[in-house]
């Protein structure tokens, strides 16, 4: 099963490699990884997507917790959470196809961020399925290049207000 793990770490050199070598040293694969500073510049947030059965993921989270530079680990998979990813898609856009491409973009609430005589570059945010779906619809026109950020995620606040 796929797990989204959110980690708070010290914002220092070498920490990313400590985290990633923990995965590689045990033969666990990282499917995607995002890192950026939090409000506190001394702390960074990593969002890592990995796949494994419950026992493996439990080991991963315990091992992560054991790293000296790791402040907090949460496996968001079990919680209600929001996830997003950003993709930039460069697609062939001939004069004949432009209208149709624009309507696809519109349906998905994407944005055209760059235009050339033969291409559109589209910015798309959403969960992984949404990014996957627009990619499929654009594929027939000819995708020249695609860049995805990988997932970022955040737990939802409790609805009851308690």
């Amino acid at each position: 099963m796929r797990h989204t793990i959110s980690i708070l770490v010290d914002n220092e050199f070498g920490v990313l490699s400590k985290v990633s070598s923990l995965f590689s040293g045990r033969g666990f694969n990282i499917e995607s990884l995002c890192v950026a500073e939090t409000l506190d510049p001394k702390v960074s947030r990593m969002t890592i997507v990995t796949t494994g059965d419950d026992q493996i993921v439990e080991q991963i989270t315990k091992q992560l917790n054991k790293l000296i530079n790791v402040i907090k680990v949460s496996d968001l998979t079990a919680e209600e959470h929001i996830e997003r990813e950003l993709a930039l898609i460069k697609v062939n856009a001939n004069a004949d196809d432009r209208a149709e491409i624009l309507s696809v973009i519109d349906i998905f609430r994407g944005k055209v961020v760059d235009v050339s005589p033969t291409t559109y570059t589209i910015e798309m945010t959403g969960d992984a399925e949404k990014v996957g779906a627009i990619t499929e619809l654009l594929r027939p026109f000819g995708i020249k290049e695609i860049v995805r950020t990988g997932k970022i995620a955040m737990a939802r606040s409790p609805k009851s207000g308690k």
């Binding site: 050199f13 070498g14 490699s17 400590k18 070598s21 040293g25 790293l67 000296i68």
Partner: peptide, 14 residues
């Protein structure tokens, strides 16, 4: 050496 000993130290520093 920090890279080399990462998997066999509890922690290391440069």
């Amino acid at each position: 050496i920090v890279g080399i000993t990462r998997p066999c130290t509890k922690h290391n520093y440069l």
